[in-house]
């Protein structure tokens, strides 16, 4: 507990140091305030955008997109990896798909996605699913294959059928790999989402955080660009540090199953 507090203290300390350096540079007058806005103007822009609801609305849009993408990926990944471990034919198919699709950055698919889906929500979700799905499948497959045979034997011994073995044994046993996959997937999806939103912009006047930053950019509002970046960092930290670490703490870390 003490160590954790220490960590937060350290974080805070370094953030203050960075803010101090930032302030010093902006005071030094080396750069035009247009390039290097002072921390106060950034905070002010952040505060104003929070106040008028713009930032919150766009953050919610981004998060809902990513959530939808994650859920779709999760379902497809489960189906693909379960198929792959239950049949050699499907394993070949899934592995081929993985080999083709996994190395492809989502952004590289943009031109095609535009033709297939147009520049709307569907396109962004497609990019997110592409970014999340393959690392997730890869991790799930590795996870399922890494389950010691003995767990399955114990399950069979108590008369469990394959479905129950999947539910009671394979699922918790592969959780460390699943979590690792989700973590990679989240990081990739978050990046893909922001880039996609900056490229596709918004359909029907509604856009997410990437769109927010893009809009601030075209209106030459550099403090606003920084404000958008701050939100991205905050969400990244919250999800990584709080959500994922918490989930790991109460599951795989407690179980001694960390990979």
């Amino acid at each position: 507990m003490l160590k954790m507090k220490n960590n937060y203290f350290q974080r805070l300390f370094w953030i203050l140091v960075i803010a101090g350096i930032w302030k010093a540079i902006s005071l030094s007058g080396l750069f035009s305030p247009l390039i290097f806005p002072s921390p106060e103007t950034v905070l002010k822009s952040f505060y104003l955008s929070l106040l008028n609801g713009e930032l919150i609305r766009q953050t919610i849009i981004s998060l809902s997109l990513i959530l939808r993408g994650l859920i779709i990926s999760l379902i497809i990944a489960l189906i693909l990896s379960l198929l792959a471990i239950s049949s050699k034919t499907f394993a070949g198919m899934v592995e081929t798909l993985l080999a083709i699709a996994h190395p492809l950055p989502g952004i590289a698919l943009m031109p095609l996605v535009l033709i297939w889906f147009g520049a709307g929500t569907k396109a962004i979700i497609f990019i997110i699913v592409h970014s999340v799905l393959w690392p997730l499948v890869l991790n799930l497959l590795t996870g399922f294959r890494a389950i010691p045979e003995i767990y399955r034997l114990v399950g069979e011994n108590y008369g469990l059928n394959s479905l129950k073995i999947m539910w009671y044994i394979m699922t918790p046993a592969s959780l460390p790999y699943f979590l690792a996959g989700i973590k990679i997937g989240w990081a990739r999806a978050w990046r893909a989402l922001i880039s996609a939103e900056m490229l596709f912009g918004a359909a029907g006047g509604i856009g997410g955080l990437g769109w927010y930053i893009f809009k601030k950019r075209v209106f030459f509002d550099i403090p606003g660009v920084f404000a958008g970046l701050i939100v991205i960092v905050i969400i990244g930290v919250l999800v990584e540090d709080l959500l994922f670490n918490k989930v790991e703490d109460i599951t795989v870390k407690r179980w001694g199953m960390q990979i």
Binding site: I115, A119, F200, A203
Partner: peptide
């Protein structure tokens, strides 16, 4: 009409219009 706007670079917009998709 702001709610109808879609941001596209000129070539993308032209292709989208000519294919009569999305816009």
């Amino acid at each position: 009409l702001d709610d109808l706007l879609v941001t596209m670079a000129h070539p993308d917009g032209m292709n989208a219009l000519l294919s009569r998709k999305e816009i």
